[in-house]
Design a protein around this nucleic acid. Structure first.
Lengths: 255, 255
DNA sequence: TCAGGCACGTTTGTATACAATAACCCGATC
DNA sequence: GATCGGGTTATTGTATACAAACGTGCCTGA
């Protein structure tokens, strides 16, 4: 191998919203390829609403902004299309997918069905010790939040995390990779993600937390049908809550 | 792992389209881009079993075989990864996804949930005239097949088509694009596709057809819960049937 | 004035060249 | 004899050049 020739490799860590972490510059080398970094960066940008719905995502423009070539951009857009965040028309390119309120709500029907099955499978298969421990810890954390009787400042985010931990534990216990893949798609829909639920109504939060307790109980008792039923109702209530929010606060849905 | 020679490429997929239809030369102009043609060709090849599970899909090799460059190949492989047909490891490339019997069966749990919701939504929303007509035509076709009292030669394929038409009509009536996307993924799993169900057991075929009648009836009566219940049981019976086949005929599942 | 068409520019689609990473082979060393 | 290390090779990752397709605006002609 000739090690003599100078190689101009003028790639700089670009900044889009942030820099696409490439190389092993910052901490973890978790991200292996540029295409993945770009995918993550774009996903984040879209989820954060940095692009308008229906806004065109021109390859060259994005490439320029992220200081990479069009190749990883294309790969990322392709992937995001599969994730449902982006739309694609042959010879016309990519654009941010617009989801009207109806479609958004419709996602919850899918989520309800999938998470319901996950709960049932978790109950039928049984949770291992680690998953049970994770659930118990999450539930206790939730208990502490609810016990305060009102919503303090940081509690919303913490309850979101608690919520995520529980659903994730159920999903893992279900041991069905396809289920996981599909639910990930649901979570990636910007607004339908639980992370975006405004846990501002304390009463509703408490009810939601109670759902969690009952779902965990059903799973531990190996009552599959009940677990499924509870989980579906749980997600359904999120759907209703979300619909209220959408219909109430008009411009909140810019997706 | 490598038994013998360092580069084992002794096994060539017997036949493979020598070249994908480039441009709009052949027949339909339905396919617009090469990448899509390649995706379709590869999907078909994988579904037909022209590649072994876990077999590596090397970009250059495929490019050579299909007479295109690596670029559309990469796009196709990326897409097929999202579809669940292909696995990807960074810096290692793509390979045909191996699904063990368990995972295969697990797909039906997902399908059951999704199609169940589709049936419920179809019932709640109501079917338009066109969809109803499609269903009626399909059901009558099925009636004719069942009326014969036994399975004639071409009937298996025709019943598969009837089956597909019905499920598709329900899906369209559900009017939930995400549901459609996800079910498409399920259908693409090689063996789990209904098209691969061996409709050899006439009694089972008749029962399946009867399910179809009842599901359609429930949808027409706008009985959402019943439609969902019936559809889930319908898919569940396919799952059981499939499991029997897998466990019975050993080598049928080379997955 | 308006319709049609042609030319141009922009943007995507594909091919190819090059860089980087991971597997492999072989030899050296403990 | 087994393991570690360097060098080699095969294969993927990225960049870039070029071709094709679509949209646009101007020009022409009736």
């Amino acid at each position: 191998m000739n090690t003599g020739s100078p190689r101009p490799s003028p790639r700089q860590p670009a900044s889009f919203p942030r820099a696409v972490a490439k190389g092993r510059a910052a901490g973890k080398a978790a991200v292996v390829t540029l295409a993945q970094s770009v995918t993550d960066a774009l996903r984040k940008a879209i989820m954060e609403g940095q692009f308008q719905p229906d806004e065109r995502l021109q390859e060259e423009l994005l490439a320029e902004r992220l200081n990479v070539s069009r190749t990883p951009i294309r790969a990322a857009l392709h992937g995001l299309t599969a994730e449902g965040l982006v739309e694609y028309v042959p010879n016309r390119g990519y654009s941010v997918r617009r989801l009207d309120a109806g479609q958004l709500i419709a996602v919850f029907d899918v989520r309800g069905a999938l998470e319901g099955v996950a709960a049932r499978l978790a109950a039928e298969r049984g949770m291992d010790e680690a998953a049970q421990a994770q659930c118990r810890a999450a539930l206790e954390e939730g208990d502490r939040i609810v016990a305060k009787g009102r919503l303090l400042s940081g509690d919303r985010n913490r309850f979101s995390e608690v919520n995520a931990l529980l659903h994730e534990a159920v999903l893992r216990a279900a041991d069905n990779s396809m289920l996981g893949d599909m639910l990930r798609v649901c979570y990636n829909i910007p607004i339908s993600s639980d992370r975006n639920v405004l846990w501002r109504d304390f009463g509703w939060l408490r009810r939601s937390h109670d759902d969690h307790h009952r779902i965990f109980d059903a799973i531990c008792r190996r009552e599959g049908a009940r677990a499924e039923q509870l989980m579906r109702e749980h997600v359904h209530s999120v759907k209703l809550h979300m619909r209220e929010q959408i219909e109430g606060t008009a411009p909140a849905v810019r997706a």
